[in-house]
Design a protein around this nucleic acid. Structure first.
Lengths: 267, 267
DNA sequence: CTAGATTGTCTCTTACAACAGACGCGTGTA
DNA sequence: TACACGCGTCTGTTGTAAGAGACAATCTAG
């Protein structure tokens, strides 16, 4: 575990909740933490470590993991005493895709877009108040920008974040954005008011571009996907080198907006 | 709900367990039943109906659903008071795919195969003792054979089932196959001994063909995917019209076996 | 309008699940 | 050999979550 000691789960990441691991935790919550922990570790893990990771008693963890393995939500990994996600979760995930037109078509469009442009393309959504990359397609550049699907990134770091929050009130936004979220990876601190202003601009422009926010070498182009007039359900975005020419950037934005509009439910 | 009244969940489908809905059920089990119920219904459902469906108290169901929705495993469906699978399950499912070479490559191969042959192609696995279609690709025939991903079908009804059980002892097989499973859709009853004999034949042949088992119009060609020498981890199969010529069938089997072998880990 | 069904919330009780901790086992290492 | 460590299982105890049921609000029908 080279990177793995700071991986403590904050159960819901909402500002109000406290507990995290008060003495006697409900089994279901423990399970939710286990799943989330596996999601961030992205690899099979021993049950003992898992117990440590979610800060749960060993005995409890064994019991829960057994249940989950029996149910097929988790599977014992090849070498024997490690667990990871199981087939059942895959099947449920496919059910979700099947029942969700937007996601199904969005994945398609993202794949098309990255194939046509050669750039990394992503479909992003709000996931319980956090920005989430729901699907991404790598593009053909030699140095592909790594951004794992399901990764959760602070909203203010992204162009998509500015679009996704378009419909929300200031108070809602304050609830979703912590102080930490306003600190960019390079250490710069964003002012909340500036961020909210960005959101308004992005909303009226119908797209958003950010340069060098997440890292110094890329800029991020995003366009909104609407589920109803005014309601931003998702965004499509392109991650391009920061020195992409003005002209090409404009072309890409136009293309992106067209595709995002095609995805939108113009009810 | 045209088809939906016999949808009572048998929690694990193992022959030994009894309970199902003894007085005070553990919350986690209820959750597992809820997920499974949603999986078989394949649509959003009201919480009241959900409680009925899994035979759980209404109050409990409300509490659990709330937890699951907060966690993102479930989502309230568009119209307001229905629930279905949520984004989190999709993300976990993608994690599973990412961590599972066989599945990732298998999906690819299946898609290729159905594109090349025009026939419906599937990747199948054992899922806690039951036959499961893990991925399927429709093919180009006018009347596509419907077979939802994640569908669980009795092992004896399928060619894949005969291959998947290749490594198992008679007692194991008896544990996985109920009396009901031996009754084919058309009413014919298979003898367990015949089924076990089929398995042995399939094992030594390295492929399996069944005609008119699930329905009268198709035959099913299957080839094993090995995770270790002798250990069948999955099968690839093709569902073709029952009147497919002997010659073409042989060609398809050869192709299928080649692709399945390519998937196998020849450790 | 009333009668019945359904939905979402709340309260109180008690059966039981989460937990602490002990146990035996295999493994490494000093 | 002895010691330390991690694994997996199995107890007994007790805090608490599952459940029964009451409640108001909202539909639907007749």
């Amino acid at each position: 575990m080279q990177d793995g000691n700071a991986l403590t789960i904050r159960p819901h990441a909402y500002p109000d909740e406290e507990k995290s691991s008060g003495s006697r935790e409900k089994g279901l919550n423990r399970v939710l933490q286990i799943l989330e922990f596996l999601h961030v570790t992205q690899r099979a893990i021993g049950i003992g470590d898992l117990a440590k990771g979610v800060n749960a008693p060993r005995s409890t963890t064994y019991t829960l993991v057994r249940s989950l393995v029996d149910a097929g939500l988790l599977e014992m990994a090849g070498d024997g005493n490690r667990v990871y996600f199981g087939k059942k979760l895959y099947l449920y995930g496919m059910d979700y895709v099947r029942g969700n037109d937007l996601l199904r078509r969005g994945r398609q469009e993202v794949d098309n877009l990255s194939r046509e442009t050669g750039e990394t393309s992503e479909l992003c959504m709000l996931q319980s108040g956090r920005y989430t990359i729901v699907h991404s397609s790598p593009g053909t550049r030699p140095f592909r920008i790594s951004s794992a699907t399901g990764l959760q990134i602070p909203l203010p770091w992204t162009a998509s974040g500015r679009l996704l929050l378009a419909g929300y009130e200031r108070t809602d936004i304050e609830g979703m954005v912590s102080e930490d979220d306003l600190v960019l990876p390079d250490g710069r601190k964003l002012r909340l008011d500036d961020f909210i202003a960005d959101i308004a601009v992005a909303k009226s422009a119908g797209y958003c571009v950010t340069s060098g926010l997440v890292d110094a070498y890329t800029k991020c182009l995003a366009a909104p996907v609407f589920s109803a007039p005014g309601k931003v359900e998702a965004t499509m975005c392109l991650v391009v080198p920061i020195d992409t020419s003005r002209e090409r950037t404009d072309d890409l934005i136009a293309l992106l907006r067209e595709r995002a509009a095609r995805l939108s439910i113009t009810g």
